[in-house]
Amino acid sequence: MSSDTVISIKNVKRCYRMGGEQVWALDGVDLDIQRGEYISIMGPSGSGKSTLFNMIGGLDLPSEGEVTIDGAFLTKMNQKQLAYIRCRKIGYIFQTFNLIEVMSALENVMLPIIFSGASDEEAKSKAIGILDKVGLSGRYDHRPSQLSGGQQQRVAVARALANTPAILLADEPTGNLDLKTGEDLIRTLQKLKDDLGVTVITATHDNKMLAASDRVIYLEAGKIIDIKTKEHLSFSFGKIG
């Protein structure tokens, strides 16, 4: 494991019970992710990409194998340590945005800052700053239902960035967006990676997202079947295009 590995996945398996049957959503995955990398996880639905995404983010724990973030074993953490990682180290962006419907845009962004232990005033001024940055000034008090899909996703991005995480996890972030807002989002993610050195990991089957990636992980039936680096990607794109 190199010193700049931020996430390391070792022989991770995840088993679900469906009826009486065991289904291996992940069947032995090994992957090291470097700090500041932009990774896309590709694969058909049911390939295990969401499961892998959940493992990396500490949203679910593996049945077998190890996941480490900055060298710390997720599987050995207590719930308060996991909460710390989720709050401070990782920002999550979901396909369905997962904004809290009863809270305003501002309150949604404030929430992780408050969980991190900041005062209300501190959280408020920080959240306003981030919302301004993603172009939502003047929409602080809007509820998610009063915002367009693109705006909701920007609130979600602002919320993910609230505690300046080192890792940004995005599960099908463009899945519910039109072409243009989707492209805007990809540019935003890429800019975060370039400017702040944020490690970006996305699960996607949107081909647009591949161009921004440093590496693309192809997943099928719970196993990594191929890993392509940027150079290789642009080569094959050249051939197709």
Binding site: A83, R86, L99, I100, F115, S116, R159, N163
Partner: peptide, 16 residues
């Protein structure tokens, strides 16, 4: 449940 899940992603602990 969804709201709880979201809050946990943002750093809510069980006791909260």
């Amino acid at each position: 449940f969804r709201e709880i899940g979201t809050m946990k992603c943002l750093g809510a602990i069980d006791s909260f």
